[in-house]
Design a protein around this nucleic acid. Sequence first.
DNA 1: GGAATAGTGTCTATAAGACAGTATGCA
DNA 2: TGCATACTGTCTTATAGACACTATTCC
Lengths: 260, 260
Amino acid sequence: MTDATTDFEPAPEPLPDSGRDGAAQRAGALQLAVSTVIFALRTDDRFGAQGAMPTLWLPLVRRIREPFEGRWALPGGPLQTTEGLADAARRTLGDTTGLAPRYLEQLYAFGDVDRTASGEPGAARVVSIVYWALVGSDEAARATVGQNVRWFPADELPGLAFDHNLIVDYALWRLRNKMEYSRIAHALLGETFTLAQLREVHEAVRGKRLDPANFRRAMESSDALVDTGERLTGTPHRPPKLYRYDTSVGLVDTGPLPHP
Amino acid sequence: MTDATTDFEPAPEPLPDSGRDGAAQRAGALQLAVSTVIFALRTDDRFGAQGAMPTLWLPLVRRIREPFEGRWALPGGPLQTTEGLADAARRTLGDTTGLAPRYLEQLYAFGDVDRTASGEPGAARVVSIVYWALVGSDEAARATVGQNVRWFPADELPGLAFDHNLIVDYALWRLRNKMEYSRIAHALLGETFTLAQLREVHEAVRGKRLDPANFRRAMESSDALVDTGERLTGTPHRPPKLYRYDTSVGLVDTGPLPHP
DNA sequence: GGAATAGTGTCTATAAGACAGTATGCA
DNA sequence: TGCATACTGTCTTATAGACACTATTCC
């Protein structure tokens, strides 16, 4: 794992953070970066609450350079000439969290001329191609943290660098929409899960309680669940069935595009 | 209007088609281009059929340079450092067709490392941010054409340059999906239109006949139609009402993103 | 009046949601 | 036995589609 980097690093060639006066640094230069909004489900244990609902969290990286030095930003970095866009997203995701995504999708390309302007003139222009990713709850629990990497609740973010608040808002909007008509909720869980856990994911993301009976029927008719034959033990009451995601069905319909 | 250009032009600075040995031309360089898939509704008059159904057409530009010299490609060009991404799409759209879009949306960023490789090595890598656009049928009728710009039926395209066939397929997929849950169909018509015309748009794009009665109800309940009080005369039979699109309602829901 | 399209009414199939009720494990 | 959760059944309501019917204009 290399150092975590954020969007808008000036080094265009081989290694991130190498030189800060490359050819692309000249005035009017246009840089291409890839950033990723990484979502995971976490149970807020700040108050030690036991049966607390899990909520959406995401890791941010503290900027160690102007502009926006000291502000939190999305993990990312310049696109290497030998890697694809999704590869770059996967790489910065791994650099930041040590994790691999269970779901990865391109979100949007942000390229307003003044989006990297922090006030002082002369800043280079950066076009950021942003991805969003989901990581499983079991892996997310052992994600790396450090001085410059911290997880935040998705709905309690501080003022971020650049236009990254808007980017996260858009990623959240997309996630919530997609949650209603696709099967991506599975990507936020572990290998096996109960129907109650799957329902909790939907409730946490969509922000409202769902009827257990109707939810069960909706999931059963989607043909995405495989009964493992096992049950989750250790619960205080009747043990629920454990399911596995049917990997023969894609999480989403990407149309003519190949899956990333 | 300047000359029409396609994706992957090597000139990075002020004017398209100026110099072909700029700094970005060096080995391993990474270029950023913006291309646009432009849709319009046209009645195929190649066979002189009178009451023929309108179908989807799109303009392509013939490449006058290697790689893929002579092949048809999407209109586009390098991103200028002083314009936004949507501005670049609008600009190349105007350069190619002389038109302004009634609807414009970012489609996807294509950036596979080998997407610009035509066989011979040494080609620079290009990341293309692709937009898709809809132009009204009245304007589309007076679109400019030329030796190197030609309109094609969207479902009878030849083998295009680069990965442009995939891009068009994806744009078509997105258009068809969005046609079912948004009001973009209006953007393919003129200022005023009849319900039958609006239904023909849906039928042409979605590729199946729709029940006039049910379609009428669906449109009336969408609150996007304004009765102009006028009727379309000159029809052989009962004259239908003319409607106008209610511009106080957006064509689509873009979430937190500003409309382009 | 006939023909053709504009426009209305109504029935059915399907899906989404509300909610009562049964089943099963542990304290 | 009580209780909490797993799981099932059924009713209501909203919606999409099929299709019969009336209305109006030009020829």
